[in-house]
Computed example of a mutant assay.
Amino acid sequence: MELLPNTDAKFWANRNALLQDYYLHDWGMPKHDNRDLLGLLVMEIMSAGLNWEMILKRRDALTEAFAGWDAGTIAAWGEADFDRLMTDPSVIHNRMKIEAAFAAARATVALTGEYRDLDDYVWSFTAGEQIQNHPTAADQVPNHSKLSKWMATDMKGRGFKFVGPVIVYNYLEAAGVIDDHIESALQ
């Protein structure tokens, strides 16, 4: 595997081919599918304190464990479903993170009173426009912003859990609301 142009071996996307492919073809690309958006949020929650590579390797299994990221299905789940997930080898066995996944589904369903769907809600923070920061080096990419602080506060007020400014910033990058691709790495 070659390093991305004008980046070093320590850059996260250069750790292996899986991360490099994710960086080049998925991360920072605008997403509007509600299931994908909920899935990315839950995966960001699951990755807190861990690493994204581990979560990315489990992406398909997590999608299956969480009913294809169908918010209505997950929102209706109860204790038996919680217990099932706590023993599922593809899921991070953390009570708070699984509870946060259920809360995210419930909050997503509740959004429809004010927003069309999760896509409408997530993109409303930027009036539907992608923020392109054009960093030229990895150290120019922040881990949070005024936008992620604002959105995290709003999300918490709507019942989402485990959504601090750093997790929300990572989520916005994964969802393509923010594009922090290093300019020279894409040449």
Score class of each variant (00 low, 15 high):
residue 141 V to N: 01
residue 127 A to M: 13
residue 138 A to E: 15
residue 101 A to M: 02
residue 125 F to H: 09
residue 141 V to P: 00
residue 137 A to R: 03
residue 159 G to M: 11
residue 97 K to V: 06
residue 138 A to T: 12
residue 95 R to N: 12
residue 143 N to Q: 10
residue 102 F to A: 01
residue 109 V to W: 04
residue 129 E to P: 01
residue 127 A to V: 10
residue 108 T to I: 10
residue 158 R to K: 15
residue 105 A to P: 00
residue 142 P to F: 05
residue 120 D to C: 06
residue 123 W to D: 04
residue 119 D to M: 03
residue 139 D to L: 09
residue 119 D to W: 02
residue 101 A to V: 02
residue 95 R to W: 09
residue 98 I to E: 07
residue 127 A to D: 15
residue 140 Q to D: 13
residue 128 G to I: 10
residue 149 K to C: 11
residue 134 H to I: 03
residue 96 M to E: 13
residue 124 S to Y: 06
residue 125 F to P: 03
residue 124 S to E: 07
residue 109 V to N: 03
residue 134 H to M: 05
residue 152 A to M: 10
residue 116 R to M: 07
residue 95 R to L: 13
residue 147 L to M: 11
residue 125 F to C: 09
residue 114 E to N: 15
residue 108 T to N: 12
residue 124 S to G: 08
residue 161 K to T: 11
residue 132 Q to G: 07
residue 120 D to K: 00
residue 113 G to W: 08
residue 146 K to W: 03
residue 106 R to V: 04
residue 137 A to T: 14
residue 108 T to E: 12
residue 136 T to A: 10
residue 146 K to M: 12
residue 102 F to D: 00
residue 112 T to Y: 11
residue 119 D to A: 07
residue 149 K to Y: 14
residue 152 A to C: 05
residue 156 K to W: 02
residue 98 I to W: 00
residue 120 D to Y: 04
residue 129 E to C: 12
residue 114 E to P: 12
residue 114 E to W: 09
residue 144 H to V: 05
residue 106 R to L: 08
residue 149 K to S: 15
residue 139 D to A: 12
residue 121 Y to Q: 04
residue 126 T to D: 12
residue 164 G to Q: 14
residue 142 P to G: 08
residue 113 G to E: 14
residue 122 V to A: 06
residue 160 F to C: 03
residue 124 S to K: 06
residue 159 G to F: 13
residue 154 D to V: 09
residue 153 T to P: 00
residue 113 G to Y: 11
residue 151 M to S: 04
residue 108 T to M: 11
residue 98 I to P: 04
residue 110 A to R: 15
residue 161 K to E: 14
residue 132 Q to M: 10
residue 98 I to Q: 08
residue 121 Y to M: 07
residue 126 T to L: 12
residue 110 A to E: 13
residue 139 D to H: 13
residue 158 R to F: 10
residue 116 R to L: 10
residue 131 I to G: 01
residue 127 A to W: 10
residue 113 G to F: 08
residue 141 V to A: 09
residue 145 S to R: 03
residue 141 V to Y: 01
residue 150 W to R: 15
residue 141 V to E: 06
residue 123 W to A: 03
residue 104 A to V: 00
residue 158 R to N: 12
residue 142 P to H: 09
residue 97 K to A: 05
residue 124 S to Q: 05
residue 127 A to Y: 11
residue 160 F to V: 02
residue 143 N to S: 15
residue 107 A to D: 02
residue 113 G to R: 13
residue 116 R to S: 08
residue 101 A to K: 01
residue 144 H to P: 00
residue 138 A to V: 14
residue 160 F to N: 00
residue 143 N to E: 12
residue 148 S to K: 06
residue 124 S to P: 08
residue 128 G to H: 12
residue 103 A to F: 04
residue 103 A to T: 04
residue 155 M to H: 00
residue 151 M to P: 05
residue 132 Q to W: 09
residue 138 A to Y: 14
residue 130 Q to Y: 10
residue 150 W to V: 14
residue 124 S to F: 04
residue 150 W to D: 15
residue 130 Q to P: 09
residue 141 V to M: 02
residue 97 K to L: 08
residue 106 R to W: 07
residue 135 P to W: 06
residue 141 V to S: 04
residue 128 G to P: 08
residue 145 S to G: 04
residue 148 S to G: 09
